[in-house]
Nucleic acid binder design. Structure first.
Lengths: 162, 162
DNA sequence: ACTATATATTTTACTAGTAAAATATATTCG
DNA sequence: CGAATATATTTTACTAGTAAAATATATAGT
């Protein structure tokens, strides 16, 4: 009994036996796991009234600890600047963040969690972490550490490739 | 010099030292690597005139080797059924797939690559694999196999959690 | 056979995301 | 200083994705 990538590999072995597809064993699984967990998080966040992307913004601000430039939020969330503006509008309307202007540069917009936004993160982020931990339940502590270290290497390569 | 998740962990350690966030070492990296590679693939596919999602449909059909139900394409690509219809419309208009009807069940729509669609996959999929291999260049063969095996375990858990 | 129910896909109405243009502010250099 | 250029964000116009309703076909129960 295999996972999605086992089936995909079998398919390619039949359809294009000459192709060296082994890299999908890693990259294909990363894509699949990422998509599944992102969908799942979106579903679980619906009752809280925020989308996956909005929650991502809130968490980014929560771990920054203080005001953050819109452009920093953009690069952390990997969305476009236009999306950051829209997410900020929606979060503002719900009273979860506030917009500030920076005295040293009038072009810059700072975003900051409101107490209500902090509450939402305090309530939802632990659930998010718990779901993530559940997905790793099949691994020993040692395996989890090994996996993290290997992924870190890949992440550094991918981030360097821009 | 750390990756995105190293920075995120530092942030949480400062902002919420009581939270057990170690699972982001794995799940956060999976999400980040997945998003980065997906963006990259989208950019690289633009000259070929297809989106990342459309290419995913074409590859799914290519490795199936023959006609596939629309619903099977939907579950393989993890998009909604409505998206499959739209992707099929666009790919049809470009002459990359054809739609067939199944004699045994009139509700079913079958999708199948045209020779032009096959050509596109034959041309673009190897580039896609090469980019993936480049992202794994920092790993030894043994490490890559280890990483694949660990991810497979996680994938099975995540897919079972459906 | 006939009604009710289930299934596969498409359509509709809407939301979220983006690229490029527009706006506003800052910096540089003659 | 002041014109040209650079930077940060927002607006505009558009594309892609979705949930739910609609459509079409199939299956089950009587």
């Amino acid at each position: 009994m295999g996972d999605f990538v086992d089936k995909a590999r079998q398919g390619w072995a039949q359809a294009r036996p000459e192709l060296e597809v082994s890299s999908i064993e890693v990259m294909g699984r990363i894509g699949r796991i990422g998509a599944l967990t992102s969908h799942r998080a979106g579903r679980d966040l619906a009752p809280a009234g925020v989308t996956r992307a909005e929650f991502d913004v809130l968490c980014t601000l929560a771990r920054a600890g203080g005001p953050m430039r819109a452009s920093e939020v953009t690069s952390a969330t990997m969305l476009s600047g236009a999306s950051t503006t829209k997410n900020a509008d929606r979060l503002l309307k719900r009273g979860l963040i506030e917009r500030l202007h920076w005295e040293h540069d009038g072009r810059v917009v700072l975003m900051k969690l409101t107490p209500l936004g902090k509450e939402l993160v305090d309530r939802e982020f632990p659930k998010f972490l718990e779901r993530d931990r559940d997905m790793l339940a099949g691994l020993s502590a040692k395996e989890e550490a090994q996996l993290a270290a290997l992924l870190r290497k890949v992440a550094l390569t991918v981030e360097a490739a821009r």
